[in-house]
Design a protein around this nucleic acid. Structure first.
Lengths: 230, 230
DNA sequence: GCTCTTGAATAAGTAGTACTTTTGGGTTTC
DNA sequence: GAAACCCAAAAGTACTACTTATTCAAGAGC
């Protein structure tokens, strides 16, 4: 949907709204947007229709297009998440996503212990071993790649499609932590060991062990993040 | 956005896609939809543009509008949730939302113990007491109302706007459990006592207690649900 | 007989106009 | 000061014209 002119208007206008350039209560006019983005009425209306569906704006005849407060937005919309991560208040979004992650990944691990296919369990073990190898080699870039893949697969193996979709933001959160220097300079062996424990517990079909180990991972990550964020 | 003709087309077409009336891979034509819904091209395009943003469909020139599989959808979009809850496979959505809830509410309770305002803590205590009263009176309708309000407030008091938004689906999940007769015929005193414990822990600023009590609540609810769903 | 090229049909994308409807605010009347 | 009225402002809907992208069928060449 970001292809085509309506997608371009959507992206620019949406990012501007999320970034506070159009604060809640601001009233936009369709004609103004046509001029500002140099597009026809059809294109402007299509972009606005999508923003309305995302609850960033509401539209009324004679009134105009009114920007809504953050509380009204579809906060789980991937585009909204992307715009929030790209704006000045990205630390807020990072914190919220990290808290969401700390809530969901332990439960996903427990569900994965019950539902993972043998292939998935095997791949998790492989990824955990790769984590250890890249940690020992102090290859942080490769470590991050495997870390992201590991967590995405745990979410996917949970068998809950809503957890699976959260895998899309794991990369953002983990990459964001690196961007803010919220990761230890080198991965702690204890943390790597916990990942291996999660993989083993899932392979063994032990939900409680998987949940506890994953909770230890995300709790530690939250503590590290709280030390570093304002 | 469900107001107006594009909103009506969106609602009907979206629900039909989610219900499997247009399975993944099916190709729609804009002109066909104009005829089927008796609307102009502008209206059809606006509705399609929103469905595209929700990832239910993709659009390409010469090809048409292609329906996407569930894995591609924005599963957290309130409209997608609504359509899923209204279709034949609503039990799947209810299960997924219940699992999501079981993951998030304990962590929300812990955060609320740290962040709730005195007003929020006070209101939680009032709601918990109301729960007890309506349980004793065996007034299940009133009990449900207070139960929903209680859980929504815990999510709101967490201070995480993404948790707060999940409050919108708490009503759906709790009401859905009642619809499927997945609730005990009368609220168990032990469950009511756990709600009071959550409220007290939040008021006392005790995150671990709040989290443990809420986890007991949602774990029990999951167990009850698993006994009743196919 | 297979492969490559070409051209046309199919379908969406974009621009823009005309008309309708809704709504809010200012003015007038009581 | 309140109620009624009217009109301007702005969105909503329909429609036409033209452009662009893409796929597929047919023909040519080897």
């Amino acid at each position: 949907m970001t292809s085509g002119l309506p997608g371009q208007v959507l992206d620019q206008l949406g990012a501007a709204i999320v970034n506070g350039e159009y604060p809640p209560g601001a009233v936009l006019r369709t004609e103004e947007l046509e001029r500002a983005f140099a597009v026809s009425r059809t294109v402007a209306r299509e972009a606005l229709r999508v923003l309305e569906a995302m609850r960033l704006v509401t539209s009324r005849r004679r009134v105009g297009i009114t920007v809504q407060p953050l509380a009204a937005w579809n906060l789980y919309d991937p585009l909204v998440i992307r715009w929030r991560l790209a704006c000045e208040a990205r630390a807020d979004q990072l914190r919220s996503l990290s808290e969401l992650r700390s809530a969901t990944e332990p439960v996903a691990a427990a569900l994965a212990a019950r539902r993972a296919t043998p292939e998935q369990a095997g791949e998790l073990t492989v990824l955990a071993v790769n984590l250890r190898a890249t940690a020992k080699a102090r290859d942080l870039d490769a470590f991050l790649v495997h870390d992201i893949a590991f967590h995405r697969l745990v979410l996917a193996a949970s068998g809950n499609e809503m957890f699976t979709q959260l895998g899309d933001v794991v990369g953002e959160v983990l990459t964001g932590r690196t961007h803010y220097h919220l990761m230890p300079e080198e991965p702690q062996p204890a943390a790597v060991r916990l990942h291996i424990e999660v993989a083993e517990a899932i392979a063994a079909g032990a939900p409680d062990r998987a949940e506890a180990a994953m909770r230890a991972i995300v709790t530690q990550a939250m503590e590290e993040m709280e030390l570093g964020l304002p």
